[in-house]
């Protein structure tokens, strides 16, 4: 799963197929390698958007061990995180994860998650990683310059089938783009402006918590945003359930 993009419908189809093959007692499908499902752990990750008018860019979801971290507070964002945070494109971020140590599976949401909406994706991990398993989820609040929401290294070690954990998450400023809120700088539907730009012109090129947005309604006359684009914490809810 690490290099391919899969979502729930596809995983379910594969699971059904594997079950059918196991029932037949043989593997006569040349296109599908035999999978010993008993050694695979499967987790459903449900992500909810709790904002009023901040769509989440397609989520990046990573199953990993202790050696990986999506980002650190007080350190500069990777380019992959910058691309995600400024334009909502998670492909470089997922590429970085796939190249990182102790990353066991990655997946992406199929589309943005609208305000109030949710999405379920599936992670599949070899059972040998059960004792150290963590999960990270990262997504952009697309009506901002460079704000993300993230679960970093949520501990799901030693989950048994049916175990579930729910956490509520805050927003972070990746520090890669000045928070001008100006027309032409915000990729989301509030503006339709620029996404990724390699320049790093924020006051402090490190990841911190986000202070939210001001908007034109709250006195930033040069902002393209309005009061509906404001938020408070938490902004995202993530539930992780082991289903196999």
């Amino acid at each position: 799963m690490k290099t391919s993009i899969k979502h729930l419908a596809q995983i379910s189809a594969l699971t059904v197929l594997a079950g059918a093959l196991a029932a037949c007692g043989g593997d006569d499908d040349n296109d599908t390698p035999a999978v010993d499902t008993s050694s695979q752990l499967i987790y459903e990750v449900t992500v909810k958007n709790g904002t009023l008018a901040q769509p989440f860019s397609p989520i990046a979801v990573v199953a990993h061990g202790t050696a990986y971290t999506a980002f650190k507070i007080g350190e500069a964002a990777t380019v992959g995180l910058e691309v995600l945070a400024e334009g909502g494109d998670n492909s470089d971020f997922i590429g970085e994860a796939n190249a990182a140590p102790s990353v066991y599976d990655t997946t992406t949401g199929v589309a943005p998650i609208g305000p109030g909406g949710s999405e379920v994706v599936t992670l599949e991990v070899d059972s040998q990683f059960l004792p150290t398993l963590k999960v990270s989820v990262v997504s952009m609040l697309v009506n901002t310059n460079d704000v993300i929401t993230a679960l970093r290294g949520g501990d799901i070690a030693n989950f048994e089938v049916g175990d579930e954990k729910t956490v509520r998450l805050i927003s972070y400023d990746t520090g890669t783009e000045a928070n001008t809120e100006a027309a032409g700088t915000i990729p989301g539907p509030a503006d339709g402006g620029e996404g990724f730009n390699a320049a790093r012109d924020d006051v402090n090129n490190v990841v911190t918590g986000s202070g939210g947005v001001i908007t034109a309604d709250d006195g930033l006359t040069t902002s393209i945003l309005n009061h509906t684009h404001k938020w408070d914490h938490p902004v995202m809810t993530v539930s992780v359930k082991r289903v196999q």
Partner: peptide, 21 residues
């Protein structure tokens, strides 16, 4: 406010705002 040499406040509304935590 966003006026570094005047306005109502000496605090920068863009830089110094925060949300809890």
């Amino acid at each position: 406010d966003t006026d570094p040499t005047g306005g109502v406040s000496d605090i920068d509304s863009v830089v110094h705002r925060w949300l809890n935590p």
